[in-house]
Every structure is written in structure tokens, then in C-alpha cells.
Design a protein around this nucleic acid. Structure first.
Lengths: 135, 135
DNA sequence: CTGTATCCGGAGTGATACTG
DNA sequence: CAGTATCACTCCGGATACAG
């Protein structure tokens, strides 16, 4: 049933596309996921949780998430500075989706390992022990 | 040949990250979504459904999805040529997740329109640029 | 501790023309 | 109809240094 472009109501963009633009960044889903698991995280904690991210990207990503009202930035004017990030209600609504994605990903990784097991035994152990530390 | 969608690196950091790499392309989620709604789509139909995609990107994206075993490509050796795309079982498993994302996106768009009703003209133009007629 | 500023290379994307 | 091929360009993201 595709009731589209009725003049009376605003034209709907592709909601999937819209949503993906909001959380499609390289680290966004991961950050949201970690924030969900830990409730609240400081800048340095996030930095350590994502070892492969640079300060520039982390700051930039956090800003975008904040601008999109997906996370809340709480700043303490202290010395030394302290900033805490947490999920907003809107961001919270994305958790089931990320959880589903997470489960799917784990399943796919497992299947991939099985498929390559004959020639990649060594790799298995390494891969399995290297997770994001917050699974 | 790019392996953006193929995750075959020795170390796999995080399931969320892994999953996003496989379906995080600019059009992948949308294509999967349309395939779910329509069950089966031909190349030209997809092209018309995504007005903003070029033939190059469409072909490239379809190839990646096929290589990742998320969609099935059925080719008829006829004249004129005919190719049909449909979801694979693995791809099917992603539908609940995309559905959730879709609902979330629709909700966000609605909120955005409400919040910015005063500047509706500008906002509408932006929102409408990716209308997809398959909501 | 929590960021900014700057430079830069390359992946990702687009426009156009061509083909079986 | 269903793609390929080529060139060009943007801009994401990394490295590094610096700042409040």
C-alpha cells in the first residue's frame, strides 16, 4: 500500500535514509551502544573504549550526536575539566535497533569463522578474544 | 575492487561496527527495505525507486549486497535482458532492524516538522529531497 | 582532562558516455 | 534493459600539534 505524494499532506522522504544519515557515521552506532551499556561515560572513557578513534573524530561525532539530540552532554566547570555523555530519550529509542544489529553481526561473524575454519584456525582464537570489551 | 562491505580483516573489533560496515552504505538499507516491501525488483525498478542514485552506484551497491549474501541476483538470458533482485535469508534477518529504524525515522521527521513549522519552507525542501514513494 | 586547529591523502560519489 | 568505463571532485577521516 503506497499512498504517496498526496497533495494534502507533506511528502514523506525515505525514513530509512533519513535515519541512516543521523546514525550512519563511522562510530555513531558504537558510541550509542557503549553509552547504553554504561549509562554514562566521560570523554576519556569513550576514547579508551574506541582505541581506533582520534580525538578529532570523537569530538566531531559527539557533537553531531548532540546536535541531533541523541546524546546529552553534561559539562562540569571544574579543574580539571569533566564532561559526561549519556543517552537522550530519543537516543534510547535506537537501542533496540542497535541491539538487533549487534546480534546479527555476532551471528554473521560466527558463521564467517565457521566457513573459514579449515584454513583459519589460528585466527579464530584471536578474533574471539578481541571484542569491544563491552559486549 | 573495494572491500568496504567485505569484512575480512584479521581482527574484528565489534559486532555493531561489523554490521554497520556491511549495510552502512549510502543506499544499502534503502535497497533492502524496498526489496522487502516488493519481494522482487528489477534493475530498472530499483533505479526508478531511488531517483537520486546513479547507475554506477546502483550497480556497485547491488554487487556488494550480493557478495555479502544479503540479496539474490537472478539473471534471465533473454532479449531484452532481465535481472531480478530479491532478499536472501540473511538479508531477511535484517528487516526487523530496518523496520525499527524506519519507524524511528518517521517519528523524527514528524517531530522535526512540528518543531520547525515556522520555517517550513526551508525544512520541507530539505526533507523532500529524498522522497521515495515506498513508505 | 577535554578538547581545537591544520594539513592532507584516499575512499566514496557523481556525471557522462558507451556496450552486449 | 541492464549494465561498464572513465574522469573528476568532494569530503570523510587520520596524524599531529596546540590550547583552556
Amino acid at each position: 500500500m503506497k499512498n504517496k505524494s498526496k497533495v494534502s499532506e507533506p511528502i514523506q522522504p525515505c525514513a530509512v535514509d533519513y535515519a541512516f544519515k543521523r546514525i550512519g557515521g563511522k562510530y555513531k552506532a558504537r558510541i550509542l551502544w557503549y553509552l547504553n551499556l554504561k549509562t554514562v561515560l566521560r570523554y576519556g572513557e569513550l576514547s579508551r573504549t574506541l582505541p581506533d578513534i582520534t580525538t578529532k573524530m570523537l569530538t566531531q561525532t559527539l557533537r553531531e550526536l548532540e546536535d541531533d539530540k541523541l546524546i546529552i552532554r553534561k559539562m562540569y566547570h571544574e579543574v580539571p575539566p569533566k564532561v559526561e555523555y549519556s543517552l537522550s530519550d530519543t537516543g534510547q529509542e535506537l537501542i533496540p535497533f542497535i541491539a538487533h544489529l549487534h546480534n546479527w553481526g555476532k551471528k554473521q561473524i560466527a558463521n564467517e569463522l565457521l566457513a573459514h575454519q579449515t584454513s583459519q584456525d589460528e585466527r579464530t582464537a584471536r578474533v574471539c578474544q578481541n571484542e569491544c570489551g563491552l559486549d
